[in-house]
Simulated assay, not measured.
Amino acid sequence: MRLAAAPGRHGQAVRAGLALGAVALLLLGIALAVSIGEMRVPAATVLRVVSNRMLGTAFEVSRIQDGVIWDYRLSRALFAAVLGAGLAMAGAVLQALLRNPLAEPYVLGLSAGASAGAVAVVVLGLGGTTVTLSGGAFGGALLALAAVAALGSVAGGGTDRILLAGVVVAQLFSAITAYVVATAADAEQARGVMFWLLGNLSGVRWDDLALAAPVVALAGLACLLQARALDAFTFGTDAAAALGVSVPAIRAVLFGVTAAMTAVLVSIAGTVGFVGLVVPHAARFLVGPCHVRLLPAAALLGAILAVMADILSRTLVPQQTLPIGVVTALFGAPAFAAILCRTRRAA
């Protein structure tokens, strides 16, 4: 039974218990992600390294283990959590704004636009030294968002039309990215870009986490502050306007916030699909449609999913690391099909 239907204090207690369980599962997943790899590290060693680095203790740990845990695995695991949380929240917001259960950054073309912008900076040198990788990704995401809005408006403006426009724009920007890589990149650049486009966390370090974590936190807070407006949007723009919501302004702000969050994450990790599609539905099933609960729940579940996907990407194939986007697609594509069939039956 869905938690939203649980009455009174019992429902609150169950939700609190599930929230604590989700946090514990996330921490366990991060611990596993740090311990598991080509060189397995005992949990006690992980705790010693973290204690030495953060608390200034002097536990005896080899330099190799210290470097692997702190400089490589821990930053990667924490970024995976941030990645999943950000994409899940972006998906929940877009589904509410468009009143479509299939909306998410990947499907709407934001991820493809951000990838094209980032590739234009890396391969073509667009903007010289004045435009960063994240800046190029943000510009590409905004351009994709504008193209989706324009095409959707020309096509009739309905939410289904906007979703189809997103699919068209995603294919267009993916084709542009492939063309740039095929014609302007050398062999090494092409290999690196194509692997990155599938979702790659291998090169994530602390400076990447320092960029992404504040952006996702601020964007999530901005979305949470508009939770009541998002609740109103689920009933349609006319109903939201009747409830006193400034529809154009709030919609522009939330679209901009999701575009910025998606752009920063894509510029670091590449395109990771289906997290923003599947996770909001799972969170909605657990805590109901109220966005003041839905957004934190989606962030937690998205973080857990991404951390687990990162673990699988390093363990599914012996002595080889798969792109995380491949793992999320393997599990997300069947879920996408199930949601599509359920939506059709509900209609």
Rank of each mutant, 00 (worst) to 15 (best):
G21F: 01
P248W: 01
W70H: 04
P280C: 01
G236M: 05
G11Q: 05
V247F: 00
H281L: 07
A260W: 05
L143G: 09
A260H: 00
L145I: 11
A298F: 04
R293K: 13
R251W: 00
E38V: 13
S115C: 09
S174A: 14
A43I: 15
S51K: 06
V131L: 13
I176Y: 11
T343R: 13
V272P: 04
A155P: 12
L221W: 04
A242I: 11
Q319K: 12
G56I: 07
A114V: 02
L83H: 00
L74C: 05
V327S: 01
R161M: 15
L316K: 02
P318V: 09
V93P: 07
A103G: 03
P105M: 03
A335P: 08
L211S: 08
M89Y: 03
T234C: 10
G220A: 04
G288A: 10
T271N: 12
M39N: 13
R314I: 10
V216M: 08
T315P: 06
C290V: 15
R73T: 09
F138V: 11
M261N: 07
V278S: 05
S75Q: 14
S111G: 11
A185G: 05
A309K: 05
A329E: 08
R205F: 12
A116C: 12
A175G: 12
A81P: 02
A219E: 09
V215P: 01
A155S: 12
R293L: 15
I324E: 01
A309F: 03
A170D: 06
V41S: 08
L230M: 04
T132A: 03
R2C: 12
A103C: 03
R293W: 12
A346Q: 14
W196K: 04
L94H: 00
F138S: 09
A44T: 15
A297S: 13
R63Y: 13
R314P: 03
C290P: 12
T159Y: 13
L55K: 07
A335N: 04
R15Y: 11
L316H: 00
V107E: 07
L294T: 05
R9H: 13
V257L: 06
A120G: 10
L322G: 02
V61K: 02
Q226T: 10
Q320H: 13
